[in-house]
Design a protein around this nucleic acid. Structure first.
Lengths: 233, 233
DNA sequence: ACCTGAACACCGTTCAAGT
DNA sequence: ACCTGAACACCGTTCAAGT
């Protein structure tokens, strides 16, 4: 309709990093802090302005709209991930490390789960990880476009798995629920599906932390095994 | 902080489905229509009220807040998915069908990608799919909590893969970009990573549709192979 | 039982104006 | 070059009041 042009902060020159006024770095750091404290819904241009002791609208000089700000903080998140050089560590080791690192960072910055997969990842940190990801599957022996397919499958698994975990933590963090009461409520709603009732008592509402980590590794091993199989056939 | 209680539309009795006034069904249908037209950001209580020829705040009688409305439309989406009975179709066939169906539905209702994995799925339709998912991996031979692990891995892959696809479509749908120009812009930003430059010309910006489907199937086969391997070791 | 309007406390963004 | 305040067009939600 409106004919909006494709745009990204990373496709235009940043404001000169000169001395006076707010720097991009200051803004991003304050934004990340605010996001960590109050979540994605808690980040408003007004609050961020206040945090920087500036007028709410001053930010629009450094950033053309809120989405650009989000692109900036998004890349900051990619910068927190650590992935070993695949040529040294071996591809499976590197892939596992990437997966676990991505999960940890998402759990540390719950709001990042809302950005992952929805926002162009063209920032320098994101590109660095993307390059390492590519080299992981190159060194595994994939060729041509399969390198990309394998990479997509891995990252899809990682954040597809971690997003619900983050959402769960967020809901649970706001109020400590009684495990038995939750079980009872879910049981009520699930009563028409007898097979699912048993399962409710299987998985512990009590220590989700450990279970979720096991679940993550279970799936990760499966994905890597499945990808490895593509190489031999 | 606020001590918010865990709550869900599905945990309390609905308003009586009596004759007068708005019905839950009317509301949900109108909401889905509005979402399809204008996306998640386009759904406001005010607009939905107007669409129903009602005051904006009338909705609060049927729904205690916007999140409950979203839970309702969310379950509607689950209702559009079709999964064969795993005991008849065989587990791999059923799993593939579920995956493809989920992807299609997400592409049809782009806003659903923003809800998946973030919202409790306790509605009747969601539970039905969850039950089928469970039976898929039961009939595959998984036992105990592994049934759940396998199910989580599969669904994580599906929406981890489809969410970026939906986001891409949304961005692209607003304006038709020139494929060559996009390539050039990405090339500029990626210039420090020589290995990635080649890749840009590999994957066609021209027919993403077909490529994305191939990518989806590639990863799906891998995930299923990897899960199958858990059974034999 | 169901709906209304006014009101409250917010949003992102634009823009003329200031220094 | 950088920042400001006022203003515009929105939000979700509450609540007293209506029928």
């Amino acid at each position: 309709m409106t004919g909006k042009q494709f745009s990204s902060v990373w496709l235009r020159e940043p404001r000169k990093a000169t001395s006076p006024g707010l720097s991009r770095e200051e803004i991003v750091n304050a934004a990340v802090a605010l996001l960590d404290e109050e979540g994605l819904a808690g980040l408003s241009m007004r609050k961020l302005g206040a945090k920087l002791q500036a007028g709410a609208t001053s930010l629009y000089w450094h950033v053309s709209h809120k989405d650009e700000l989000l692109e900036l903080v998004y890349d900051q998140v990619w910068g927190e991930m650590s992935v070993p050089e695949p040529e040294e560590a071996g591809w499976r080791e590197a892939a596992s490390a990437l997966a676990r690192s991505m999960r940890i960072v998402m759990l540390r910055h719950p709001w990042s789960a809302d950005l992952l997969g929805r926002m162009p990842a063209l920032g320098p940190n994101a590109l660095q990880i993307a390059d390492r990801l590519r080299r992981i599957f190159i060194s595994a022996g994939f060729q041509g476009i399969d390198v990309e397919y394998a990479g997509s499958a891995l990252t899809a698994y990682i954040y597809g798995m971690t997003t619900p975990e983050v959402a769960w933590n967020t809901v649970m963090g706001e109020r400590q629920y009684d495990a038995d009461e939750m079980r009872a409520q879910v049981a009520r709603v699930v009563k028409d599906f007898p097979g699912m009732l048993e399962r409710i008592n299987l998985d512990a509402y009590d220590d989700p932390q450990a279970i979720r980590e096991t679940a993550f590794d279970f799936g990760l091993t499966s994905v890597l095994d499945g990808l490895e199989r593509r190489l031999t056939t």
